[in-house]
């Protein structure tokens, strides 16, 4: 009993320190908590940060495919149904029919195709101003610190979450709260040597996370949920998910 009490106090003190350090984005516990399964543990305060910039490195098309799916999964878990998302890019590559598997209604995504980087940035900023949008995903080649700062300022007013897909892996400092790199790993087949391809699995590199610790872990997608594919955990999670 005393131990729990002490932990609570420490947790509160941590939050106070964070607040003093100027991190306003500490998620409110009372707000709708995303159900990300085991992923929550990786985020500060065990809450997936919304209303911030997430940056994804996806230079290769294979990674783009995984990132797209992962983001769809995140969106489906963190947002209300029937909400609209805006996807700004210049490639017309995303195949909406493939996204349904990851829990999202593909017709709720509004795609905006723009040729120039400048236009994409402009449209992203405008879209982020709109409070009716759940999330804005934009494919950008690169983004400078000043540009990301501008987006950050917009977000602070509107609390919309921005997902920036960088098609260029050259990292520079930006105002993003989380920087991800998602790459495909072998699909998982329930540890049995079954023929065919199993459920999608990815290696997630949390390269940067504000108020948290960068980590690297594996995650899979099964039955509309993120699952832990670390060898030690896999069997219990699958059993839990499949029932």
């Amino acid at each position: 009993m005393q131990k729990i009490f002490r932990e609570n106090i420490i947790e509160q003190l941590r939050q106070q320190i964070n607040a003093l350090e100027g991190h306003k984005q500490i998620p409110d516990k009372s707000s709708k908590k995303a159900d990300l399964n085991f992923l929550d543990a990786y985020f500060p305060n065990q809450v997936f940060p919304t209303g911030v910039i997430h940056e994804f490195l996806s230079e290769e098309t294979e990674n783009l495919a995984c990132t797209t799916a992962f983001i769809s999964g995140l969106l489906s878990k963190t947002n209300a149904k029937n909400s609209f998302y805006i996807w700004i890019g210049n490639q017309k590559k995303i195949f909406p029919a493939g996204l349904k598997l990851f829990g999202i209604e593909p017709h709720q995504i509004i795609f905006i195709n723009l040729a120039k980087q400048k236009d994409i940035l402009w449209a992203t900023e405008e879209a982020l101003k709109c409070k009716s949008i759940q999330a804005v995903i934009s494919e950008l080649d690169s983004i400078s610190f000043a540009q990301s700062q501008r987006l950050q300022l917009t977000i602070e007013k509107s609390k919309v979450t921005a997902y920036i897909l960088r098609t260029n892996n050259n990292i520079n400092s930006t105002t993003c709260a989380v920087r991800w790199q998602i790459s495909a790993i072998k699909s998982y087949n329930n540890d049995v040597d079954m023929p065919g391809i199993g459920f999608p699995s990815w290696k997630i590199d949390l390269l940067k996370i504000r108020n948290g610790n960068p980590k690297s872990f594996n995650v899979g997608w099964l039955n509309g949920q993120f699952i832990n594919t670390e060898p030690a955990k896999i069997e219990t999670t699958i059993l839990k998910v499949v029932g």
Binding site: A65, C66, F95, P96, G98
Partner: peptide, 10 residues
């Protein structure tokens, strides 16, 4: 949206 057959995301 049909999900019975695998479809790519890209």
């Amino acid at each position: 949206w049909p999900i019975c057959k695998p479809r790519p995301t890209v």
